[in-house]
């Protein structure tokens, strides 16, 4: 088809077009209200998804920021898993939130000082 035979259309001839608009891709037809609704839905979905992810991944060990209280809690847990003192005295951790007491009890029985082989 030879386009030279077609009549030239000015911008005014076709409503809604501007000079140079023929070179552009045709714009989408989504109305503003639908864009707003889509944006709201997208943001709420991201919020809900992130909330669900945060609920299931409460503690991220590789998180870039570790507030001081978390570090203190970590040191407390380390202290509580350490070897307890057998002296019978009460030992406290550095934050004084956990108290460890010895489970070794004194006895009135005679001390065993020999073994079967000795």
């Amino acid at each position: 088809m030879n386009t030279h035979h077609l009549p030239l259309l000015s911008a005014k001839a076709v409503p809604g077009t501007q000079p140079g608009a023929a070179r552009r891709k045709p714009a989408g037809k989504v109305p503003a209200w639908a864009l707003k609704l889509g944006t709201l839905f997208t943001t709420l979905s991201i919020f809900a998804g992130s909330f669900g992810y945060a609920t299931t991944h409460l503690y991220a060990t590789n998180a870039p920021l570790q507030p001081a209280t978390i570090a203190a809690a970590d040191s407390t847990s380390v202290a509580s898993t350490g070897t307890p003192s057998t002296s019978g005295s009460t030992s406290t951790s550095s934050t004084a939130t956990t108290t460890l007491t010895s489970s070794v009890r004194t006895t009135t029985q005679t001390a065993v000082t020999t073994t079967r082989h000795s």
Binding site: K25, A27, G28, K29, V30, P31, A32, L35, K36, T39
Partner: peptide
């Protein structure tokens, strides 16, 4: 024209003002 495939500039502008 990053969102040209989606809507016309007037609708995009309305969305921008609403964000």
């Amino acid at each position: 024209q990053v969102l040209g495939f989606l809507a016309q500039n007037r609708a995009i502008r309305a969305l921008h003002d609403w964000t």
